[in-house]
Simulated assay, not measured.
Amino acid sequence: MKATGIVRRIDELGRIVIPKEIRRTLRIRETDPMEIFTDKEGEIVLKKYSPLGELAECAKEYSESLARTTGNVVCISDREQIIAMSGTVKKELVEKPVSDKLEQIMHDRENFMSDDNKRNYINISDEIENEYNSQIISPIICHGDVLGAVIMLSKDGKKQFGEQEKQMVMVASDFLGHHMES
């Protein structure tokens, strides 16, 4: 564990303020759910809670099915990182943080499809060099909250996604959102 040198006191209601610098670095926003863990040494660990993380196996199976059906790469993310990736031998994006632009698309709750020649293509994660030519992104919404996104990618420079692929990605995100509600 890394020490920050920051000390905070517990108030009369048992609350501790997480410093702004740490919240900004870890992308913790107001109202973000946090999980609380304790260990044998008496340490308390806070971790951002990801409802989609609980569905990681389901998300992986869904992404594999969609990738097999379409022949494209399919990723599923929560609001912080890519949790599943299928349709490619290497899983280079799994557990990589989502880019600020992807986070903004999720926040805007808009479906997104890149146009020809990568003019409006966005990197899914800033940690991996972009090697894809086409993409579709559809936010996963549950009880009015954005939980993540379903992303379809293609490396084929001659292939541009159309309405059919967009509808498939939208169905996937809608299915995962409704699955979280039950």
Rank of each mutant, 00 (worst) to 15 (best):
Q160N: 04
K91T: 07
I105W: 08
K155H: 04
Y121I: 15
V73S: 01
L55M: 14
G53C: 08
I128G: 14
E41C: 11
L147V: 13
D145W: 13
K91G: 02
G177T: 08
S86H: 01
V150K: 01
H107W: 11
G14L: 10
P19K: 03
I36S: 05
Y62C: 08
P139H: 12
Y121S: 11
H107R: 15
R24A: 06
N130M: 13
K166Y: 11
M113F: 04
L26S: 00
G148D: 09
V74M: 12
S65N: 02
I151F: 01
I10R: 12
I128W: 15
M180P: 00
G5V: 05
N123H: 14
S63W: 07
H179K: 00
K96G: 05
H179G: 02
I18E: 08
E54T: 06
D32K: 05
Q104F: 01
V169H: 01
E30N: 11
I82P: 01
D78L: 00
F37C: 00
D78V: 01
S77Q: 07
G144K: 13
E21L: 04
Y49N: 09
N111A: 08
I76Y: 13
K48N: 02
K118V: 10
I10T: 13
E35W: 02
G177R: 10
Y132W: 08
M152P: 07
R79K: 15
L13C: 14
I22G: 00
D78N: 12
T38N: 13
E92F: 07
E165N: 09
E80N: 14
P139I: 15
K158M: 07
M1A: 05
L46D: 02
E30D: 09
G87F: 12
K47Q: 00
D11Y: 06
T70S: 14
V74I: 15
P97S: 07
H179M: 04
Q167V: 11
I122H: 08
G42M: 09
S50V: 02
G87R: 10
R8F: 12
V169G: 05
T38R: 09
M85A: 03
E43C: 09
E35A: 06
P33Q: 02
G5I: 08
K40T: 14
